[in-house]
Design a protein around this nucleic acid. Structure first.
Length: 497
RNA sequence: GGGCCGCUAGCUCAAGUGGUAGAGCAAUGGACUCUUAAUCCAUAGGUUGGAGGUUCGAGUCCUCCGCGGCCCA
């Protein structure tokens, strides 16, 4: 690849000079034994005299992050996965050749392996006095400025690898992400759930309301949809006799990109036979409370300047009650289409007049007026049946679904319900939904007949829940943008990238 | 989709009302045995996101386009 940047040319030339000296620029026979962070932790309290006496040799590898050449001494920091540690090359301690090579040919950004003993500088910093070193990887591009690092958000996302090198806090986010996923997985497995993998490519899109990505299978000569949700497959597994299953993986939705939406995102769905959405509320509280204790050693976290308390039990509020009390929708307006339409319009909310489902209107108003107010963990219960096509009808009132949505920090985080397992009702709901396809492009393009057949074989009474993992990570890492918790968020293509 | 803001050296940023495009770090050459945003001397580095336009003259004003951020839908 041609690069006309002066800085890169210089590095390529240097690489050639190194190789001309018979030095390998990309060897793979160096095995580090020590890590920067642990050396610092272990030896911080030990005096220079004691370190001198012990004469221990340490072996580590890392990227050169700074270089301060003082003539016959060169101080430098190298960075491994755990952090940075200072190293010192002294002309008196290494061969003349090594010293020359380090001074002349080792650049900031190169990865090197070093052997040496620990010393403390006069300021008390644990430092490795190098006895020998090896070039392990030559870097051909300069790192960003050492003090400010890489700030440009666009560059940070497009070159996450550089972001990770320069901004140690970014690594923490993704460690926390991994921890959260591991914690949830451990919880479910310890509760007897089986982790499963169902298709990512669906012949029929379903399980949620969203526009799917379409792809094409050559050999089968058919269109496939990237899944918008695994729900209908997980339910088939309950028909098949698994009683507790979960899947923790990616979903794909062909929608806009925003600070809370990435076209692919990570979702946990779990299903439990002989349980109701009430049981799942308890599990949800357990999971989040446990996570807060593990991550913060406290039931409290701060999200975007707001203190959030995960101590169970959490607040529950009925959907209508929330619309009235938090959304300010008057009682007489709620069920009157015309009044409701005008009420929304007054609030700057445009409702789709062609949509006959008043429930759809309610959820729209709910999103705008209620959602942002639900800061503390809150279960919103008793959802309108019209917008819950896969949920069981409430025994109390057939117009409600036995369903909850969980809100934290003003965002929807989880959605759960007692599952509809009456195949007759399920078919009716699909068919009703079908009629609306022309006015609502999020309705799946066809009915999943095989799913209905499976229900006819009998799915045990059960409850299921979906948790948006990216949002959970946002909450626990206090990030307002989903892109900060996804390693490689999707951006528009750009030349030079 | 709409509004606002941004895009200048590898990175972080400057350049009243239009008048020769600068600094720090990084780089290159040199000095320095406890530096740590090292310091000191010197050198080099630019199609100012792209394309048009206005003007004697555009980083700056206008139009269109691209990419991003925030807000709204």
């Amino acid at each position: 690849m041609f690069e006309d940047s002066q800085l890169i040319k210089v590095r390529y030339e240097k690489l050639k000079l190194i190789e001309d000296l018979g030095i390998k620029a990309y060897p793979n026979d160096f095995r580090p034994k020590d890590k920067a962070k642990y050396l610092k932790e272990l030896y911080q309290e030990i005096s220079q005299e004691e370190l001198e006496d012990r004469e221990l040799e340490f072996v580590l590898a890392g990227r050169v992050m700074s270089k301060r050449d003082m003539g016959k001494l060169v101080f430098s920091h190298i960075q491994d996965e755990t952090g940075q540690i200072q190293i010192l090359l002294a002309k008196s301690e290494v061969s003349d050749k090594d010293f020359e090579i380090f001074k002349k040919y080792i650049d900031i950004g190169d990865i090197i392996g070093i052997k040496g003993k620990l010393i403390k500088t006069k300021t008390g910093e644990i430092t490795i006095l190098v006895r020998s070193f090896r070039l392990l990887t030559k870097a051909l591009r300069p790192l960003p400025e050492k003090y400010h690092g890489l700030k440009d958000v666009e560059l940070r996302y497009r070159m996450r690898y550089v972001d990770l090198i320069m901004n140690p806090k970014i690594k923490e986010i993704f460690r926390t992400r991994a921890f959260i996923i591991q914690y949830i997985r451990d919880y479910l497995i310890s509760e007897g759930f089986l982790e499963v993998e169902t298709p990512m490519m669906h012949p029929v899109a379903g399980g949620a309301m969203a526009k799917p990505f379409i792809t094409y299978h050559n050999a089968l000569d058919m269109n496939l949809y990237l899944r918008i949700a695994p729900e209908l497959y997980l339910k088939r597994l309950l028909v098949g006799g698994f009683e507790k299953v979960f899947e923790l993986n990616r979903n794909f939705r062909n929608e806009g990109v925003s600070s809370t939406h990435n076209p692919e995102f990570t979702m946990l769905e779990f299903y439990e036979a002989y349980a109701t959405y009430e049981d799942l509320m308890k599990r949800t509280e357990e999971i989040f409370y446990g996570l807060a204790l593990e991550l913060k050693q406290s039931p409290f976290i701060v999200f975007q300047g707001k203190k959030i308390d995960f101590t169970p039990p959490w607040k529950r509020i009925e959907f209508f009650q929330a619309l009235k009390e938090l959304g300010g929708v008057p009682e007489d307006v709620l069920k009157d289409r015309e009044k409701l339409y005008n009420f929304a319009k007054n609030k700057g909310i445009e409702l789709n007049l062609k949509d006959p489902r008043i429930g759809k209107w309610w959820t729209k108003i709910f999103e705008e007026l209620v959602e942002p107010k639900l800061i503390q963990p809150t279960f919103v219960i008793k959802f309108p049946i019209e917008v819950s096509p896969l949920a069981r009808r409430s025994e109390e009132n057939p117009e409600w679904a036995d369903r909850f949505e969980l809100y934290i920090g003003g965002k929807e985080v989880a959605n759960a319900f007692s599952e509809l397992n009456d195949p007759r009702d399920q078919r009716k709901r699909f068919e009703e939904q079908n009629k609306l396809r022309e006015i609502d492009e999020e309705i799946p393009p066809e009915i999943d007949e095989d799913f209905l057949r499976a229900l006819e074989y009998g799915m045990p009474p059960c409850a299921g829940e979906g948790i948006g993992i990216d949002r959970v990570v946002m909450i626990f890492t206090d990030n307002a943008s989903i892109r900060e918790v996804i390693l490689f968020p999707h951006l528009r293509k750009k030349e030079d990238f």
